[in-house]
Write a protein that binds this DNA or RNA. Structure first.
Lengths: 131, 131
DNA sequence: GAGATATACGTTATAGTATAACATAGCGCA
DNA sequence: TGCGCTATGTTATACTATAACGTATATCTC
């Protein structure tokens, strides 16, 4: 069930810990490798089930454009901003923007259920590094 | 090379024809199946190379949230709107929306390079069908 | 026309991402 | 105690995508 954030299973906690320790999204199989380092035999469903639970709890998101997972609090609706230089990902709230999109689509009769908005580019820190 | 739209190879034309004949995005392996029906032996790289060329020519897009491909003219920047009932996909221009997002991020020092914006929901036609 | 270069294509193999299906263990509680 | 629920383990497989190498063909240049 879509569990709330007040309790994590140990697999979920372990996955979340690895995601938070990384400074960029991790693929499911990268996580699998970490867990195998930690514990020995672990199979893909273990990782995918933990990811599913964490996503439902609003603690992580799949970054569709990277096929990877990040501990971005599910500001949902929200925008994910990804630096292609350093790999960092962060969530950005943009309520007015999303409201205007919503109204735009509603006017055409489209009932919006969810959006995925991912922006790629270069963050301020990386721009400075190359200045 | 990022070829322009003025010439398609025969593989590209064949893939584009199938995508246009469908009323919903198709996965690469669905396309592969169609091409095998048409011609016999075809291997995945044939399909993926055609998809890459068509994408570079701005004739199709990968729908990230569906892991599938659609003949959506690459209004880029633009918004892709997907009906989860009937599967149809269309591109929507939203320049003012994207401009405000751009400025919002620029103000934080983020140099935006490309966005992926996909909205899921139910289109007007499908809403009527259930009315 | 021979050779050089470039593009598309074919072919084989493999990498990478995700889930189905079934079995087991532990917990809360009627 | 026995039932139902959740989490987990385990095996196998499905689905998505690309690497690497060889061949054919067209074009250009000398």
């Amino acid at each position: 069930m879509g569990q709330s954030a007040d309790h994590l299973t140990s697999n979920q906690a372990q996955v979340l810990r690895h995601l938070r320790a990384a400074n960029a999204p991790m693929t499911a199989y990268q996580l699998l490798g970490r867990m195998q380092n930690d514990r020995g035999a672990v199979a893909p469903p273990t990782v995918y089930r933990a990811l599913k639970g964490l996503e439902e709890a609003g603690l992580i998101r799949r970054i569709e454009t990277l096929r990877a997972w990040a501990p971005v609090a599910a500001i949902r609706p929200g925008v994910v901003v990804i630096c292609d230089d350093c790999g960092t990902v962060r969530g950005v709230e943009a309520p007015s923007l999303l409201e205007s999109l919503h109204q735009r689509l509603a006017a055409e009769g489209f009932a919006e259920a969810r959006q995925t908005i991912e922006v790629h580019g270069r963050c301020g820190d990386c721009a400075e590094d190359r200045a």
